[in-house]
Design a protein around this nucleic acid. Sequence first.
DNA 1: TCTGGGGTCCTAGGACCC
DNA 2: TCTGGGGTCCTAGGACCC
Length: 432
Amino acid sequence: MTPSFALVDCNNFYVSCERVFNPALEGWPVIVLSNNDGCAVARSNEAKALGIGMADPLYKIRALVNTHRVVTLSSNYALYADMSARVMQILEAQAPAVEVYSIDEAFLDLSGFKPSKATAFCRQLRQTIHSWTGIPTCVGIGPTKTLAKVANRLAKKHPQTGGVLNLTDPALQTRALNMTEIGDVWGIGRRWSKRLTAYGITTAAQLRGVCPTWVRKRFNVVLQQTVLELQGKPMLTMETCPPPRKSITTSRTFGQRVTELEPLLEAVATFTAKTAEKLRHHGLLTSTLTVFLSTSRFDRPELCYQNAQTLSLTEPSSDTNTLIHHAHAGLTRIYRPGYRYQKAGVLLLDLISIKSYQPNLFTDHTGREKSTHLMRAMDALNGRWGRGTIRFGAEGISSQPVWGSSARRKTPAYTTRWQDLPTVYADSPDQR
DNA sequence: TCTGGGGTCCTAGGACCC
DNA sequence: TCTGGGGTCCTAGGACCC
């Protein structure tokens, strides 16, 4: 059976989610900002057409935003995560095998399909997703994941494809690869793009033509795989069940610079609590915690400082209290007065499943049991009434701490919080 | 003044061991 | 003055992804 992959990718995903609940945004240039309203992380086609680039800092595009009345929104991850789940649910129900690749993308295994059937199936799927969720998508089809990616990119770029492009045909493949710049190939970032260009390789078609062994020697196995995939030899397979996580982290840029240790301890406690919650949610335990803090990398070198401290736990744990203690110990060691800190975070490593945990001779069984009950109760309460309803004193009690991120234009959590449920009127506005 | 967050994988080099 | 070799493990840094 010839392998065939489809890549379903939501168009301008975050912006599309916002538009579902605010159709007035349709046709307008819209951008969604990163945490702290720092950079543009999603752009509508109109915003792209104005020249707003991915991850452009807001302060640099301020003039453009004002002149063209670009709508700027803070990111609303609760909404995007929920909308993503709805899209994926449709795929799971309709496609033979699905690999959720990111919040807005999934690979499908279409190996059983004839090429024309695959295209028709994807057109139908696209339509279903749109009418059931309001989210527009594009689909690329190819004999390898990398070629499906190429196809998807072209489907997005060229409306005449009707949102679906099938690159099963070799002649079409060549045409497509000739139209694709080297930096637009999946797996080729800015650095490699530059190095390849220095060798005179500037298109995907040229990259397909180079000797894989040469690439292996000059670059690495990852890029060699990319070459083979472009040649139509599948190196990457479907990963329908996600591999176990290796790390979990929470970090934030502060809304304003922080100089004192006190608020940093509070911020790090909050990040630790959040990370521990994720850890428990995944049924995992950690035995290594890293805490880090830094000034801005854009500061003058003499004002820059960054450091991290890694601590080992005597026993694997997912207890917020224990983890906060370690994080605080680490932070106190790396904190230096006199700097204007911009960011801090917590990283949990050496994760094991709670099922494979083995107590040792010195394990405090009563203590562990108590902790499990306490954490379970906390998670239940916060799940029911919202995150932070019940928290550790170390996290602070202010609803607007000095280190807090700013998110000035956040839309409601339309689909995940009862109070935020949108109201729909059957009559016309002037009758209200 | 203002510049995101959360991941994975590969490689080179050092430490250590026999 | 001459000063082995091979294997493994760990870590930091660099590259990529969305």
